[in-house]
Write a protein that binds this DNA or RNA. Sequence first.
DNA 1: TTGTTTCATTGCAATATTACGATATATAAA
DNA 2: TTTATATATCGTAATATTGCAATGAAACAA
Lengths: 109, 109
Amino acid sequence: MGLAKTEMFTDEQNEISLFAKVFGHPARVAILQHLFELDSCICGDLVNEIGLAQPTISQHLKELKQLGLIKGNVEGTSVCYCIDKDNWSSMKNIMIKFLDQDIPNTDCC
Amino acid sequence: MGLAKTEMFTDEQNEISLFAKVFGHPARVAILQHLFELDSCICGDLVNEIGLAQPTISQHLKELKQLGLIKGNVEGTSVCYCIDKDNWSSMKNIMIKFLDQDIPNTDCC
DNA sequence: TTGTTTCATTGCAATATTACGATATATAAA
DNA sequence: TTTATATATCGTAATATTGCAATGAAACAA
């Protein structure tokens, strides 16, 4: 099938999985790390620093933008991409809440 | 293609994306939340509580187990699954380090 | 032994993802 | 206007993922 049955899960479960899915490719992780380190902000620089073709990077940027985690700013013929602080922060809260749960003490495993 | 070019990314970037990918499906998020809440630990209970077929749940459990995030314990004819505390903890450190980076102050966006 | 229960594995169809060449679009420069 | 540069979009091939019916394997009960 290749199609997740989202209707049988909670909104929270679907939201966590959507955020996680966008981090589920090393190119998108690399793009975000570059934006965090600010050694590139312009789309073309990302294409040069990461070794993928320009349409591929553009496609990954689009997915990050669709989730609201980055935003783009046109500057002449080039586009500057940056982390969207507010949206990143609320995503972070949701993900950390999931990751940082207390692990129950069981005797079965 | 459908194939990530992992050789062009750092080990850290690949590791983050592998962990994220396993959280990229709501069924696996749901399984983990059940294990955190301890209202089910036995594979068959998970099948009942989540609405997917038994082979599907079994496959998702396998992926979580392959990454070391859960471990299973055979009890008679049933199997008890639990979070692997140590591995979860080290995964958590890696993911939170990625999520909790300082966002640079730029004037471009 | 035979049957039952529980879970894993296999095989396959449907869909999603990834990557990139070709091309379109938009801005700036000449 | 023409040309160059930068990015987005389209189309498509290759591969991955999801879900489940059918089946297998293992432990227990009768």
